[in-house]
Structure formats: structure tokens, C-alpha cells
């Protein structure tokens, strides 16, 4: 594969006709920790190319929901389907599934003993067994896109929080996932670095990457989301377009939640 082909593939905006087909479907998901429910009865559908922002008060189960989506948590009841295939059977090969589901964490979790480039290439080389040259080209394209190519030989400890988070995003993106999960990835950042990371996510949204984003950045949610999912106490309380949710929330719980952010 030539550089331009890789570049085209990585920069490609996904064709619009795919839009609207369900990619991830969750039905009646229940998750307990030691008998205490964290997710009570979640049903949620995420379509291809959709950007879904999950909002809700602390402890309502947002992280738990994302973690269930890529098998980091064992669930007690319900079903998760990716592209029509059931993920929640005993035989599920999560190694395969996780290559299609990219996840970025609040605390970056870059591998501290590897350079930025080594962090990014680990998955493509060891998991996907891709050719080094091709993987390096893909990594370069992506690093250039987020302005980190100069930092490829740096270790995580030599980067700012914003740079670390951008590198972590690239580590997930280089696997060419079908969907990306973001769990409060700007929450640990200094205010001046939040922007650079949000910009990367906005750009991804424009290239029609399917994304589920947990965040407390309301302005960003308004700008990026196709849909807002509002959760409280382990349940999906509202599921509506941002225009509706922010202007005229249907429930008292959502109104109270939004009021906190008014000030």
C-alpha cells in the first residue's frame, strides 16, 4: 500500500449512505457491583457515524456503561450487539471486538516505558500483525494530524497532559476502530489544554467517526453531539437531540442537572 492510499484511507470521510444503520445496540443491560446495581436497565442504540454524548451526575454509571461496551466489565443481564453480532455470549472473543472499539481514558494510560510511537505501534504490530512500514506510515499520518509527529520519540513523562491525551487518542485510532469511546478525557487536563483535545474530537466528529463521549464540557456537547443521552442512577433518563435537551429537557432530573451548569 502506498503512502497516499493510507493517507486517503485515514483521512476519508465515511460515505453518507452508511449513516443511520445501527452499529452498537444495547438492550436491557444490567450491571451490578456486589449486588448493588450500577446500571439498571439500559437500552441504547448507536448508529454508524453518530456522535453520542453521555451526560449525567457523578456516579450515575457513565463509565460503567462504556466499560461494558468493550468487555472490561462482566454484565449480569441484557445484550450488546456490534454490527448485528452478539458480544455478550460466553464465547465472545473480546480481543477481536476490542480492535473494533477504541477506548480513551481520563488518565491517558499511555505505557510509560514506551515512546509515543512505540505506544501507538504496539496494537497494529502485535495484535493486528500489520507490516511495520504500513503501520508506521499510518501512525505518522495520524500524529501529523494532531500535531504530535515531532514528539514521536518522546516518552509520556516528557509530554504535557494535552499531548499525552492526543497520543492516547492516536493509539486507539491507529487500530482503525469502527467506534470510539471517550471517558471524560479532558477532565484531568489543565484548562488551557482542554481545547486542543476537544478540537481533535471535533475533527473526528466531522470525519464521521462513530463516537460515544462522556464529558462534562457542555459547550462541546452542544457543538459535537448528534444526540445527548442523559443518565441518572444507572438509567437512561433522556435520549434526545442536543437542541431539545439543552433547550427544553423533558424531565425534572435533567433540568436540575443542567441548572448546576448554568452558574
Amino acid at each position: 500500500m502506498t503512502d497516499t492510499m493510507i493517507l486517503d484511507r485515514l483521512n476519508a470521510v465515511k460515505p453518507a449512505e452508511e449513516r443511520g444503520a445501527p452499529l452498537l445496540e444495547i438492550s436491557h443491560l444490567r450491571k451490578e457491583y456486589d449486588g448493588v446495581p450500577a446500571l439498571r436497565d439500559i437500552s441504547l442504540r448507536i448508529d454508524k457515524q453518530e456522535v453520542v454524548v453521555v451526560l449525567g451526575p457523578s456516579g450515575c454509571g457513565k463509565s460503567t456503561l462504556l466499560r461494558c461496551m468493550n468487555g472490561l466489565e462482566r454484565i449480569q443481564a441484557g445484550e450488546i450487539l456490534l454490527d448485528g453480532g452478539v458480544l455478550t455470549t460466553e464465547k465472545t472473543d473480546w480481543r477481536l471486538i476490542r480492535q473494533k472499539i477504541g477506548m480513551v481514558f481520563q488518565s491517558y494510560e499511555l505505557f510509560p516505558h514506551m515512546t509515543v510511537l512505540e505506544n501507538i505501534l504496539l496494537g497494529p504490530l502485535k495484535v493486528q500483525k500489520r507490516k511495520r512500514k504500513e503501520a508506521e506510515t499510518a501512525a505518522r499520518v495520524l500524529l501529523e494530524r494532531v500535531g504530535l509527529y515531532e514528539k514521536r520519540t518522546a516518552f509520556p513523562r516528557q509530554l504535557s497532559g494535552g499531548q499525552k491525551q492526543r497520543a492516547a487518542i492516536i493509539r486507539a485510532l491507529v487500530m482503525e476502530p469502527e467506534i470510539m469511546l471517550f471517558d471524560e478525557i479532558t477532565a484531568a487536563l489543565d484548562p488551557e489544554m482542554v481545547r486542543e483535545v476537544l478540537d481533535v474530537m471535533l475533527e473526528l466528529a466531522r470525519s464521521r467517526m462513530t463516537m460515544v463521549i462522556v464529558t462534562h464540557e457542555m459547550q462541546f456537547a452542544k457543538a459535537a453531539a448528534d444526540r445527548i443521552v442523559f443518565m441518572d442512577e444507572g438509567e437512561v433518563v433522556e435520549d434526545s437531540p442536543p437542541g431539545d435537551f439543552f433547550v427544553k429537557p423533558k424531565t425534572e432530573r435533567a433540568r436540575r442537572f443542567l441548572n448546576i451548569f448554568q452558574f
Partner: peptide, 30 residues
Amino acid sequence: IGRGQIESGLSIGLSRSQLVRYVALPQALA
């Protein structure tokens, strides 16, 4: 080694033995 390191390794699709070899052991040795 924090749980987050293991989970980020898992989330790029590493197997258990790859996790030990590439993520856990080098850090544990230090």
C-alpha cells in the same frame, strides 16, 4: 501497576500473555 494500564492494554486487543510481556513485566521489573 495500575488497573488502568492493564485496561488500556486490553482495550487495544492485547492478549493476557502479551499484556504480561509488553505492559506489565517491563514496568514491574523496574
